[in-house]
Amino acid sequence: MGYFAKSPWLLHYDGSSCNGCDIEVLACLMPKYDVERFGIINTGNPKHADVFLITGGINTQNIDVVKNIYNQMGEPKVVVAVGTCATSGHFFSECYNIIGGVDKVIPVDVYAPGCAAKPEMIIDAVVKGLGILEEKKKKMSPK
């Protein structure tokens, strides 16, 4: 992959996870891993974000919140499911109110499994997501 035409901004939301993946997402922004060197920064505003990092297996109360955040993001956008819970529900899918996996609520582009997903894995997933972002952008632009 070459360089990106645009600095991709991240949005992170905790969809019923145990916190482990969330602090690993934050750890990616810290001096040791420092994704800011790729121009990636964490934003709190869905309207500014290109990449949506979502952790956890999503419980019934969170479905609407996740859909709402997803719909507020502008096109093109990429969704990265971080952690085993977000990809399949992990053992939480046996719980009575976990629907098991982000892809049951919103379309997911990249899956990053792991309990908890390591920062290397998250960075790799985001970089893969950026390739998808570029492709989506090309499809959107008029010929």
Binding site: D14, S16, S17, G56, G57, N59, Q61, N62, V65, F91, F92, E94, C95, Y96, N97, I98
Partner: peptide, 15 residues
Amino acid sequence: VGFIHRGLEMLCKKK
């Protein structure tokens, strides 16, 4: 509250 409620205490019946 309730956005992260997973019902872990119930899992003791299944595991």
